[in-house]
Simulated assay, not measured.
Amino acid sequence: MSEIRADGTNVRTAHQDLHSEQGALRGEHPGRSRNPVIKVADLAWLEFEKPDLDRAEVFARDFGFGIAARTERELWLRGTFAGSPCMVIRRGRTSRFIGPAFRAAERADLDRLARATGSAVRDADVPGGGKVVDLLDPSGFPVRVVHCGEQLPALPEQQPLLLNFGTDHRRTNATQRPPREPSRIQRLGHVVLETRVFARALDWYLDTLGMIVSDFLFLDGQRDRGPTMAFIRCDQGSRAVDHHTLAMHLGPGTGYVHSAYQVTDLDSIAVGGEYLKERGYKRSWGIGRHIQGSQLFDYWRDPDHFMLEHFADGDLFSCDVEPGWAPMSTSGLAQWGPPATRDFLGASPSPQRVRDVIEALRGDNEMDPARLFGLLKAANS
């Protein structure tokens, strides 16, 4: 099924079980900007601060990162794919997420972005050098847009296993014995953020960085108030890209939820999980397969309680796939796998969470009692 846009382009409306049971209703958010400032090409890396870089490096190696660079004050982590690093951890007084860095498609995009936002283009403090524009999104997250000079070379890959399917016997006279070792991270896939100003933040990423929505989620009985979660991808035209590079959801807090890193296949996820479990790390949720994005997933906590995901086999969408719309629910998070845990959902009560709720309900944001009740209902549905 397709339709013709006003500009003459043919658009696949994509709601015959492609990725959602339904699409937008008349007047709902289109999921893209008419005239964005630039169109970022991808997520470059994530920035954190932690007081103990030695402990951070031990977990990073166990989780499957390579080390791109290490100084007394910085730890740069990478995957096996050529390109930019996945993460930088800087020494700080507390463990905290700083913000994401997105990759500009062209160097000239930084000049255009700087002019439009009243910012400056400066040298990037990244291995290999480059240029960066520093921004602040409506949630208060520092957001960098970078154009790197020197790219990291590719590293040896963890090869996918050769599988037999029914009468298709590709492996004979050979056994399957994947080595018990860390999953080898290939690349950074996406980051998920919680915000009290979801609608404003969503429009900012679409208008400023040219990202487009793959799927919207809405609260039961509140669709007329707009979505409360969006899975957002980069717009590279006809080139298919990850179903989501950024996901955001409305909540009482403002902060990092998790980040996801691609590995080779299901065996890499499973064996890497066994490796992490043997070393005493805590699994948050997994193994399973998501609905929005379709990824195979496995979620873990690092020693500072940050959540990181191993994933494989995610959906890839080109620009002609329109947003899907679906109700927000815990049961709608996975096609198969164990039930989502309270740890993954952030549903365990804590003094900080109580303070977040009180502050959100008193503040100038998009949280109100109806939204809060709807989120609690979604977490238990």
Rank of each mutant, 00 (worst) to 15 (best):
326 A>R: 14
262 Q>L: 13
231 F>H: 08
145 V>T: 04
6 A>F: 13
146 V>H: 06
286 G>Q: 04
331 S>P: 01
39 K>H: 11
98 I>R: 12
313 D>S: 06
298 D>A: 06
304 D>P: 05
184 R>L: 14
293 G>A: 11
74 E>R: 15
353 R>C: 05
56 A>W: 00
219 L>G: 06
354 V>C: 01
93 R>V: 00
267 D>R: 00
259 S>H: 05
116 A>W: 04
317 F>Q: 13
337 G>S: 01
252 P>D: 09
193 L>Q: 02
9 T>V: 12
278 E>G: 12
154 A>H: 03
322 E>R: 13
67 I>V: 15
355 R>I: 14
174 A>H: 14
221 G>D: 09
154 A>L: 11
375 L>N: 07
277 K>P: 00
238 S>D: 14
157 E>I: 10
68 A>V: 11
360 A>W: 07
18 L>Q: 10
143 V>A: 08
293 G>W: 01
277 K>V: 09
373 F>W: 09
345 L>D: 02
321 V>D: 11
41 A>N: 05
68 A>L: 02
43 L>W: 02
46 L>H: 03
51 P>C: 06
258 H>R: 11
263 V>M: 07
108 A>F: 02
340 A>V: 15
288 G>K: 01
164 N>D: 15
38 I>K: 08
335 Q>V: 12
47 E>Y: 05
248 M>G: 10
361 L>G: 08
111 D>M: 04
369 P>H: 09
202 L>I: 02
379 A>L: 05
156 P>V: 06
92 G>A: 05
47 E>Q: 14
154 A>M: 09
375 L>T: 08
2 S>P: 00
127 P>N: 07
310 H>L: 15
302 D>E: 11
339 P>S: 07
72 E>W: 03
11 V>K: 10
280 G>N: 02
321 V>G: 03
72 E>V: 14
137 D>R: 08
149 G>A: 01
368 D>N: 15
98 I>Y: 04
268 S>I: 02
364 D>P: 04
130 G>H: 00
170 R>V: 06
148 C>F: 04
376 L>D: 04
198 F>E: 10
3 E>A: 14
159 Q>N: 09
51 P>R: 08
258 H>E: 12
51 P>Y: 07
329 S>E: 05
149 G>L: 03
273 G>H: 03
318 S>T: 03
164 N>V: 13
261 Y>T: 09
143 V>I: 14
166 G>Y: 11
202 L>T: 06
55 R>E: 13
139 S>M: 03
371 R>Y: 01
